[in-house]
Write a protein that binds this DNA or RNA. Sequence first.
DNA 1: TATCGTAATGCACAGGTATGCATAACGCAA
DNA 2: TTGCGTTATGCATACCTGTGCATTACGATA
Lengths: 113, 113
Amino acid sequence: MASQFTVHGRLWIEGPDGTVLGHGRVELLEKIDALGSLSAAASALGMSYRYAWKLVKSMNEHSDSPLLTLNAGGRGGGHATLTDAGKEAVATYRQTDREFEQFLSEQSEKLPG
Amino acid sequence: MASQFTVHGRLWIEGPDGTVLGHGRVELLEKIDALGSLSAAASALGMSYRYAWKLVKSMNEHSDSPLLTLNAGGRGGGHATLTDAGKEAVATYRQTDREFEQFLSEQSEKLPG
DNA sequence: TATCGTAATGCACAGGTATGCATAACGCAA
DNA sequence: TTGCGTTATGCATACCTGTGCATTACGATA
């Protein structure tokens, strides 16, 4: 019989100069990759464009190579695309996160009563 | 050679009625156990008494059996002691947390670059 | 019963996180 | 060169977490 208690957690990756890549940012990057637009990605996640833009700015500022490129103007008004570094960062985080989910469920099993 | 990136995280245990036991609360419980006083524990942790007391109240309200007992007045002005349930909760959390630290360092090793 | 230091609790406020609104800058395509 | 929808950015605001201050309640012991 399973315990009535469950183990939960949050995971993030820190770089040397304070870079932080956590769940929310990765989700945003993935949506941008899928939709090709920052504003579309933000609203798809129920996040304000204002804040999504700040996240992106912070991510690019703190990485030695930018995780994505934003372009204002042009066909469709503009667009956003992940760089190779961005795609790699997402993949790395996702792999770590998968193992974390596994860890959490194992730990939940171990809890008493 | 180790990666320049490291994996970090936070861990907590949730009970059926929204009980939450995380790092800060456990640390507070341990200090109370060691010092026998809520106000001493709070200031030892650099935490305001006001907030520490709120944490304790919330913990006791959401557990079916209280994790600690507080006594105002009397010799020394009052005192605080962990119940058996409280001590058990701390021990359970610590065990899980130890394995979590292990997990984090393993994951940090695995990171590229 | 008076004292003493802790527990108990309200109120004002600071800081970070996130929203919402308004407006300007941008640059390809029609 | 005009239009369009996106990026870019300031400003006001709300919320949550946590602090700080002030005051009261408490009860064993001297």
